[in-house]
Design a protein around this nucleic acid. Structure first.
Lengths: 285, 285
DNA sequence: ATTCTGCTGGAATATTTATTCTATCCCCTG
DNA sequence: CAGGGGATAGAATAAATATTCCAGCAGAAT
């Protein structure tokens, strides 16, 4: 069987692209899609172009060559590999990107702020705005002493147990993954097989418990926190309101109000706090 | 930084400028302040430069001359009138402006990553800052059409299957919880009991798949996306780099770079995008 | 091993782009 | 309204930047 591997004569582009990319987005797509087909040096350039689109847009061919550690001629081969006449044509797309983003940002924000729209883009804009506000609020209102205390308690623990369900469960999953990755002992109380009570009994006197629960406060989680605290074991909690049952059933309790759109609350802000606890735990060790 | 030397020392700049502008802001100020002193043609250029900073940054001297209706040599006189050696030096400031605005995100993230105090409160501050930058970046760079397409594909699906592991798993957990809560059919491919292959077979021809994977790209997830896409079933993906294997093995692929401190990457930004997809899915129904 | 094919580096060349130079123009002043 | 001084246009030139070309190389196929 004759392979259609026959690359056409020199003048034609190696890729059979019918019409060549006309925007930055398109060329990024084209580069990603054909990356595997590229030769070693061309891969190198592709990676550089995707990672440094700004520099790529304004540097001269010589400077780009230096920064990407290739020969100038390789950049031209790169351009031709995607059907262009030369490097400048490719660079133009990257320049266009700078202009586009720069001029369209304001108008995009406008369309996003415009209240009632429910297009996905408008929703994203509102979530971003909401999450930013929530994050700023978080950093302004969290008491440093609480953070210190939480890190101290978790740092001293033999095994860190972690429990959260429903909407808060992803926090537990992330916490577990991160703690385990850094080589510490951690146990996830996930109530698998209805074995929650048994898992709870695994919490030792020198351990610690991290719990998170929101809104209608999962009874199992609250109960575990309560029991564990009663046994004199440190409990670090993350919840959403001062009147949450976790406030009283924990050694240290953080209150985070995540952003909501259409009554749907996210997790970005809580994630940020969890991330902070984890890294603080990591650097102190 | 090795600059092609400027050979001729010009005696003295026409304006008494002691030290010449080094940023776009500064040169704009300088131009405004001295506008009245300028000659007719130089005024014309000043006006053009202030009104079209984008074009001014990327056009060649000849094109700028044409657009501003002046001679190329006038542009050089303009540059020298403010104490520069030549046009290129002025243009560089305008280019820098494009980069500044555009790369503020990366550099902000960079500045957040390593250095600084390691008290928990300081870490929180850095995470908050990093996540805010990442969120802003997200809302600027996401293509609305991609969002629309993703929502459309997921909206049409009979059952939505969702798969993510390791660091990305919390995204799948949150996605599952939220979709199930709003009363839609959803399946979590969690590979429990090593039954991943069988779970994958549950994906029907009218369904859709949502996957997320980062950094060292879980092979199982990539494989499932590939197989599913090959069967003609829509795959919506969330990953962290254009060269991720998910880019090519999906119908729609989002790229999100979460903020990192001490090499530990969070999930806040990805969470925000997932949250957006979910609510968009909810309101369209 | 041996040939072949396509990739690569780097010098040579072509092209584009920036800058200089000067005759001419304009406009101000006396 | 004549003369002078700065500004201007446009051609001429210099510099830079992009592109071509080819010899040598490396990896695949034989």
């Amino acid at each position: 069987m004759t392979k259609p591997h026959t690359r056409i004569e020199k003048p034609s582009p190696p890729t059979r692209a019918a019409l060549l990319p006309a925007t930055h987005q398109e060329i990024v797509h084209e580069i990603s899609a054909n990356y595997e087909r590229l030769s070693k040096r061309l891969k190198q350039i592709a990676g550089y172009a995707l990672d440094n689109p700004n520099d790529f847009a304004i540097d001269t061919i010589a400077e780009t060559a230096r920064k990407a550690q290739v020969q100038p001629s390789a950049l031209i081969r790169f351009a031709k590999a995607f059907g262009f006449d030369g490097f400048s044509d490719v660079q133009r797309l990257f320049q266009q990107r700078l202009l586009d983003v720069h001029s369209s940002y304001e108008s995009r924000l406008e369309s996003v702020r415009g209240s009632g729209e429910n297009t996905p883009a408008a929703l994203l804009g509102r979530f971003v705005e909401g999450n930013i506000a929530a994050l700023e609020h978080l950093s302004r209102t969290i008491a440093p002493e609480k953070l210190n205390e939480a890190v101290r308690l978790l740092g001293q623990a033999g095994v860190i147990h972690v429990m959260a369900m429903h909407r808060a469960f992803p926090l537990a999953a992330f916490f577990y993954y991160a703690i385990a990755t850094m080589g510490r002992r951690v146990q996830l109380i996930d109530n698998v097989g209805g074995l929650g009570r048994e898992q709870q009994k695994q919490i030792g006197i020198n351990d610690a418990l991290f719990v998170a629960s929101f809104s209608s406060y999962t009874p199992e989680v609250v109960h575990t926190a309560e029991q564990t605290l009663r046994r004199g074991i440190p409990v670090v909690a993350l919840t959403d309101h001062p009147l949450s049952p976790l406030t009283t059933n924990s050694s240290v309790c953080f209150h985070v109000k995540d952003a909501a759109v259409h009554d749907f609350r996210g997790l970005s802000t809580s994630m940020c706090l969890v991330q902070t606890l984890i890294v603080a735990l990591g650097v102190e060790a």
